[in-house]
Amino acid sequence: MSQFTQGLEKVLQGDYLDIILRGIKMTLELAALSWLLAMVIALSLVVIRLTNHKVAVAAVAGYVSYHRNIPTLVQLMLWYFGISSLFPYELQMWLVDQNAEFIFAAIALGLCQAAYFSEDIRSGMRAISSGQTEAARALGFGYLRSMRYIILPQGIRNALPSLINHTILLFKNTSLAMAIGVVELTYATREVENYTFLTFQSYLVCTLVYLFFSLLLMFCGAIFAKKLNKVYAR
């Protein structure tokens, strides 16, 4: 037992702690950036799809099914090794200077998650009665404004539970970015393990950190949902 705690102490101090903390920071940054990207794309996809324009609907459906049916890991690789090589040389060089693996990881995760978010919001919107759109239109709100003030806020509220679940999924999926060299928490943990051979302790710390943040997200989501529900008292 004491050997175990000594190991744990070792992992949690000095350079090793430093590596883990930097990993946590990277994980959080990656999650935040890709979440933001995903949300912006998802909202656009929803609005595009709701135009009911044939081409637009098909394009969005294609986007969603592509991203839901290809493993996220493959998409990460595709962006980092594949698509980036199609860029002009100068841009490639510039990206390398700018921490390319982080940028491509955020793009790949964001694009992928956008597919889930947009489906969440879409089904949240389906629960809204058509009378809401009619009332908005009758008051003189055009398509975009009725979306913005009347339909989307209700759709997001309805979608909140699944959005929270998928946010947690996104948070966990950031660990895949280690495959293209992003030094996030999982990558950092493996480094610490390589230096210390304290496999169990290293991954225990890692597990607890993921657990902590996932629970935190769930908790915040629950509070947010509760607040909304109080407001809309059903």
């Binding site: 009665s129 809401q132 009332a135 239109r137 009758a138 008051l139 003189g140 709100f141 509220r157 809309y232």
Partner: peptide, 20 residues
């Protein structure tokens, strides 16, 4: 269209107030 609609007061059978 939107300007026109904004000048017509319309009341629905199901009220259609915005619940949020």
């Amino acid at each position: 269209l939107n300007t026109l609609r904004s000048r017509v007061g319309f009341v629905f059978q199901n009220f259609n107030l915005f619940p949020h």
